[in-house]
């Protein structure tokens, strides 16, 4: 028996008409993500990954088709941490708690737990500009988790970090995902990152943006980037990407 779906994307298209010629950013994308599944959306620049994610987040509406999150709360992380610069780390997390309607007496404990979870227990009083890029993304993760989302959307959240920091954060996100039973949709154009993290990789192709293939990654966890199996899987993903590129050209 397969687990209940957490997210259903049904024949979704998005056309931007505010450009000189209408741009088909996404064409007839369909996708079903099971509860607790870790999905990577993999594809070259401009294939509609961010467009799809922002529609799932409710920031934009599809031109046609439908998206159902089955009543799950959706959180999102972006390439930049987007912390509110006028608030401390604690203030950023508290704002997320406030906006989720969590009663004030619980805030202290929750902030402590969340900061401990992202391994920044003492950063509460710091300001965003006093943190490193990796620390900012951690706080951003803590803030997304503060709103008790069941589905976490991540749009190339680690793309601007160095390889070492990214590696640590991969471990962290895999741990948090397992602990909390989250459903994650993770956007990347890095094949190794996809092979390292995903249960299933959804391959997308540009002009027009669409979903062209799906590859299950059955490797056991915990995984490491250096494992030969991960390298082999990413090699296969690369071949597939090139294959669909040739077909498109």
């Amino acid at each position: 028996m397969s687990p209940a779906p957490a997210l259903t994307v049904n024949e979704v298209s998005k056309v931007f008409t505010d450009t000189q010629v209408p741009t088909v950013a996404l064409k007839d994308a369909s996708l079903e993500v099971a509860e607790g599944e870790f999905i990577c959306l993999l594809g070259r620049s401009g294939c509609g990954k961010s467009t799809l994610l922002s529609m799932i987040a409710g920031l934009a509406s599809p031109t046609s088709g439908a998206i159902d999150t089955h009543g799950n709360r959706v959180g999102m992380m972006f390439q930049d941490a987007n912390l509110f610069p006028w608030l401390t780390v604690r203030g950023n997390i508290e704002l997320a708690l406030r906006l989720s309607g969590i009663p004030k007496p619980e805030w202290d404990g929750r902030v402590q737990d969340l900061l401990a979870m992202v391994e920044l227990p003492d950063a509460g009083q710091k300001r965003p500009h006093q943190l490193s890029g990796g620390m900012r993304q951690r706080v951003s993760l803590a803030r997304a988790l503060a709103q008790e989302c069941r589905i976490l959307l991540m749009d190339e959240p680690f793309a601007s970090l160095d390889a070492l920091t990214r590696d640590t954060l991969h471990e962290e996100i895999a741990r948090v995902w397992a602990q909390r039973g989250l459903t994650i949709v993770f956007v990347t154009h890095n094949v190794r990152e996809a092979a390292r993290l995903a249960d299933r990789v959804v391959i997308m192709s540009p002009s027009p943006g669409r979903i062209v293939d799906e590859v299950p990654i059955g490797l056991p966890r915990p995984r490491r980037l250096e494992q030969p199996e991960v390298a082999a899987a990413s090699g296969k993903l690369r071949e597939l990407l090139d294959h669909y590129d040739l077909k498109a050209a």
Binding site: L59, G75, M76, D80, N82, L95, L99, S100, R143
Partner: peptide, 10 residues
Amino acid sequence: PLLRTAKVLG
């Protein structure tokens, strides 16, 4: 980006 983040946070 801050506006988008705020909207996702509700």
